[in-house]
């Protein structure tokens, strides 16, 4: 659609209002909410189409909200209708869970099948740009990983974890969509685990515990991304054309033990032969938030290489991994003292 040869597409281009029309799925998630707030203030964006089951609180003058549930059948037709009527130019697909859930069947419908629905809508009514929110976690933690995983590395995350498997499936269908529809610029942003003063996910809650369990004898290098840099990356993806897969990571690495100390917590080393069964039992009993496969991330390295986006687009994150941890820790300390409300949980 970049070369508007088709008369119908040219007509669309003529009627389209000045400025971009950006649609977001999962608009009421952490990234969606904040992005809407940012785009509301940006004159280059003329309209924001928020798609979610709840209206995001940050929706303002430019935002139009449509209640869309990606787990419903035939949602693709409705999406295509919205895309056409709003003349959406850029679609940000961010309807993913930021923390594992026990409702794994629903999560599968939302993430894996939901992505299929969104892509079907894009096949029916092409958008110019499609941006997917993904994770560097999908590379998987392994002692065989290179210290800095490039974008070309296969996604090898433990297939036993539904949470990660659904996201890998979403990436796979998006990759095949990108191959099949050259008219759409497909950008995949693989974000390192998010930390920051206002974001709330399983990781912030893990680091927020009084005693943080770790695996005895293992101290992998960790990499985090500050929430502001995550939003900056998505905004860049809206404003600039950057087809391809990009790792978005904070500079530098920290050993897990240092990260826990910076967060002002104590770590509780547990031998792995004990840790794993306990983690599994707690997960089965729905008492823990992370599936047992996440223990792997406490043992092995999973750090991605952010050089591609730095070299090609001069994108430099404002916060290093360490600064992200410190920024999170300062807010968390205020929350501990009940001086700050708990971060928004979607």
């Amino acid at each position: 659609m970049t070369d508007a040869k088709d008369p119908e597409q040219r007509a669309v281009a003529r009627i389209a209002p000045p400025g971009r029309v950006v649609a977001l799925t999962g608009a009421d998630g952490f990234l969606g909410r904040n992005l809407i707030g940012l785009l509301e203030d940006d004159d280059r964006v003329s309209r924001i189409v928020a798609l979610d089951v709840e209206r995001p609180a940050t929706a303002g003058r430019k935002t139009r909200f449509y209640k869309v549930d990606l787990t419903q059948p035939r949602v693709d037709a409705r999406l295509a209708e919205i895309l056409a009527s709003e003349q959406v130019e850029t679609l940000l697909h961010m309807a993913f869970l930021s923390s594992p859930t026990h409702a794994s069947a629903w999560a599968h419908e939302l993430e894996s099948v939901g992505t299929l629905h969104v892509l079907n809508a894009c096949r029916e009514r092409p958008v110019r740009k499609f941006v997917l929110w993904s994770h560097t976690m999908l590379y998987g933690a392994s002692p065989r990983n290179p210290n800095f995983i490039p974008e070309t590395h296969p996604l090898r995350a433990q297939s036993a974890s539904r949470y990660l498997r659904d996201k890998i499936e979403a990436e796979q269908v998006v990759a095949s969509f990108a191959k099949a529809s050259p008219g759409t610029l497909v950008t995949v942003l693989r974000l390192a685990p998010l930390l920051g003063p206002t974001v709330s996910n399983y990781l912030t809650r893990y680091l927020g515990r009084t005693l943080v369990p770790t695996v005895m004898g293992f101290d992998p290098l960790m990499q985090f991304l500050h929430e502001v840099d995550a939003l900056a990356a998505f905004k860049m993806a809206v404003m600039r054309d950057m087809p391809g897969v990009y790792n978005i990571v904070g500079d530098g690495v920290l050993p897990l033990s240092t990260a826990i100390q910076l967060a002002g917590r104590m770590h509780l080393p547990i031998p792995h032969p004990v840790f794993h069964p306990i983690a599994r039992a707690l997960w089965t009993a729905q008492l823990s938030e992370a599936p047992p496969t996440f223990v792997e991330y406490l043992r092995w390295i999973c750090v991605a290489d952010g050089d591609k986006v730095a070299n090609e687009l001069q994108f430099r994150p404002a916060f290093t991994t360490r600064e992200a941890v410190l920024d999170y820790a300062s807010a968390q300390r205020m929350r501990d003292a009940r001086l700050l409300r708990p971060a928004h949980t979607p």
Binding site: N147, F148, L221, G252, L254, P255, T320, T321, R322, L326
Partner: peptide, 13 residues
């Protein structure tokens, strides 16, 4: 104040 992480650890650990 740990602005500079290289004081603590380099990128390869």
């Amino acid at each position: 104040a740990i602005r500079d992480r290289s004081e603590e650890i380099d990128e390869f650990g």
